[in-house]
Simulated assay, not measured.
Amino acid sequence: MTISTEQVQTAGRLWQEHRQAPFPDSLRRAEFGGTDVWVLDLYTAGCVLAWLDNDGILDAENGRILQSCIEDLARVIPEVNDPAGAQYCQQLHQLAVLISKNLASTK
């Protein structure tokens, strides 16, 4: 699959919007089913940045990490009681899913 410049730019714009959102205080020490939300945010961010820096290519290990983050976010989101926290996690999940659907061949 070839990733277009437009797809990378769209993901980059969504990433910038997400980065501008403050990390909700309610999530700073939040843990759901053994998953620390701030760690999940950190791992997802690393995968997003790697994908953007490599023009839509993510190595196999980061691809597995991204998939795990998507699954964990889907599990965590219904547990977040704070609306701002839930929205933050939903936006991160949406971005991760967008990237996972637009992965070029991995190295």
Rank of each mutant, 00 (worst) to 15 (best):
N81R: 04
K107L: 09
E31A: 11
D36E: 15
K101C: 01
E79Q: 11
E61N: 13
E6S: 12
E71S: 15
A11P: 09
G12Q: 09
E31K: 14
V8I: 12
E31V: 13
Q67T: 14
Y43C: 04
V37Y: 12
A45T: 09
L49E: 08
R13L: 11
D59S: 14
E71I: 07
H18A: 01
L66D: 05
L73N: 08
D25W: 06
Q90L: 07
L73Y: 05
S68P: 13
A86H: 07
L73D: 04
D53A: 03
P83A: 05
V8S: 05
S26Y: 03
I70S: 05
G85F: 01
N54C: 09
R75D: 15
N81S: 11
W38Q: 12
T44M: 00
H93Y: 12
W38N: 12
L40V: 12
L92M: 13
A60H: 10
W15C: 04
Y43I: 00
T10E: 02
I99T: 00
V80P: 00
Q9R: 07
Q94K: 01
D59W: 09
G12L: 03
P24E: 04
C69T: 12
P22K: 14
Q20H: 06
G12H: 05
Q67H: 13
G34W: 08
R19T: 06
